[in-house]
Write a protein that binds this DNA or RNA. Structure first.
Length: 491
RNA sequence: GGCGGCGUAGCCGAGUGGCUCAGGCAGAGGUCUGCAAAACCUUGUACGGCGGUUCGAUUCCGCCCGCCGCCUCCA
């Protein structure tokens, strides 16, 4: 498996610290407001990366919450609440939305405020080893003392110096130095430390939380590309300066930004699509497909029309899944939930549908999936493989070749395990039986009307159901119906 | 200014030194159907510009043009 390492700028063979295991840390959100599509893009990219790694290895996935920060404090002031209340609120909002986007929960979600003592010890080590200095209750990292600085972002100290600046009230020796600890200001949350009361600086938390989880030299560290500098650069400097060990992380993965109207989506400019709004109108699957169709390192230009297109594409997959379920005479729901997972577990023997020597669509799709994903997590290729399989299998279904349906179901299971783009089948609700009964009743009336060639009545029944979000289709095997996903996506 | 990325058919978006093709959406024609829907089949000779390397470049190199990101909190 080859993956792109930001540090080398090249594709490298993935060699993990422990064979068969991957320890992975992805920078989580600063919880000061609700998440937007840009956040989702990053999270979904790393979710798919994680799922692919899980396909063949044991993965421990850690992602933090940054719950102490200037913006949280500012927000708390606005809302007249404590910073902690603000952080807990938006942590919950984040977790809810990511669950709705079918993102797997991290194995651990450490909070910055729960790692303060670790941060203090790390800062002490950095100071002891001569890479940081206290000044007026602050502590700054001495960038000039650390030779590897700029390694990740491929910039020289001179380059960085040109852009660096000193904020009023800071006590840096050099502009490129950065704060490890900030002296408390009145009314702000603070913790006791050897340098007096204060709170941690911008980047120390991730150095501490990731090494708390995994120690030095863990496998993969990820995040959005806007974190490369200074956040990740500083994480490296801190962890390596504190321990003298190298490397901090073996592979650095960075996902691209989402653009809206040609510019980066960012809260600060108001150039955002909030996920709560997007999920009112669109399904998680369409959003995931949109993300999967662009390589994770590339920029993603967002428009409403693109999600709408993905919605139609997802419908296509759902229709195929339902056809397969029909052939197998199982409920579609069974091909979406636990059975699918069980199927995905046994991934041997994609015997294929054809006769001897013929390779079935699912076998080709599986090898294309593997090829693409093993090459720097090529989700676009995986998506293409999924649709290619759908087309070919549909063609076989059209000609009545059903013997491979079970293999298709298994392949769908694997694709859904990695990408999570198959929409859930008919949802069970309190009124499911009633709805189904009424629809069947209406369809029975329609069937009788058709038999007596009263097509006007038959079409009225179909149109009426259509208005209620029930799609009716006459197949050679009989009439089938389904709910119009797009009318119910927001619920 | 420094670092990095991108420019592919109507739109989105993979990919590759030549060989039959990414894929999705949209469009056109067709099969099926009472009609529709779904599905399938057919259909589009695209690779920003100019040079260079090469038998041959969209793919490699150089320059130019355009767009974007980071260099400040940011997924």
């Amino acid at each position: 498996m080859r993956i792109h390492n930001t540090e080398s700028g090249e594709l490298e063979e993935l060699v993990t610290r422990r064979p068969g295991h991957v320890d992975m840390y992805v920078c989580g959100p600063t919880v000061y407001g609700p998440p937007h599509l840009g956040h989702a893009r990053t999270v979904i990219c790393f979710d798919m990366i994680r799922r692919w790694l899980m396909h063949s290895r044991t993965v421990t996935f850690v992602s933090n919450y940054t719950d102490v920060d200037d913006k949280i404090i500012a927000r708390a002031r606005e809302e007249g609440r404590s910073a902690e209340e603000v952080a807990r609120t938006y942590e919950q909002v984040w977790a809810d939305i990511m669950r709705r986007l079918r993102v797997l929960e991290p194995d651990r979600t450490p909070r910055a405020t729960e790692a303060i003592s670790g941060m203090i010890s790390m800062i002490e080590s950095i100071v002891e080893r001569g890479h940081a200095y206290p000044a007026n209750g602050d502590v700054y990292f001495d960038v000039s003392s650390y030779a590897g600085y700029g390694r990740l972002s491929h910039q020289s100290l001179a380059d960085l110096r040109a852009g660096a600046r000193v904020e009023p009230g800071e006590h840096k020796r050099n502009p490129e130095d950065f704060a490890l600890w900030k002296a408390a200001k009145p009314g702000e949350p603070s913790w006791e430390s050897p340098w007096g009361p204060g709170r941690p600086g911008w980047h120390i938390e991730c150095s501490v939380m990731s090494t708390d989880a995994f120690g030095m030299g863990f496998d993969i560290h990820g995040g959005g590309s806007d974190l490369v500098f200074p956040h990740h650069e500083n994480e490296i400097a801190q962890a390596e300066a504190a321990t003298g060990a190298k490397p901090f992380a073996r592979y650095w993965l960075h996902s691209g930004m989402v653009n809206l109207a040609g510019e980066k989506m960012a809260k600060s400019t108001g150039n955002v699509v909030m996920l709560s709004d997007l999920l009112e109108v669109h399904s998680a699957e369409a959003i995931r497909l949109l993300v999967a169709q662009t390589h994770y390192r590339h920029q993603l230009e967002f428009t409403e029309d693109l999600v709408e297109e993905c919605e139609r594409a997802v419908d296509r997959l759902a229709t195929f899944r339902d056809r397969v379920a029909e052939v197998l005479q199982v409920d579609s729901a069974a091909l979406t939930g636990p059975l699918l997972e069980a199927l995905a577990g046994g991934r041997d023997g994609y015997a294929g549908s054809g006769g001897e020597g013929e390779v079935g669509p699912e076998a080709e799709a599986m090898s294309a999936l593997e090829r693409s994903m093993d090459d720097d997590f090529g989700t676009p290729g995986a998506v293409a493989a999924l649709f290619e399989m759908t087309k070919r299998a549909n063609a076989e279904l059209d000609t009545g070749r059903l013997d491979a349906a079970w293999s298709w179901a298994k392949a769908l299971a694997v694709f859904d395990e990695i990408l999570g783009v198959l929409p859930p089948a008919r949802e069970e609700g309190a009124d499911t039986a009633l709805v189904e009964g009424l629809v069947e009743l209406a369809l029975d009336i329609r069937r009788r009307a058709r038999e007596s060639r009263d097509f006007e009545l038959a079409d009225r029944v179909r149109a009426g159901l259509g208005e209620l979000g029930i799609l009716v289709e006459d197949a050679p095997t009989g009439t089938r119906w389904r709910r119009d996903r797009r009318q119910t996506a927001g619920r």
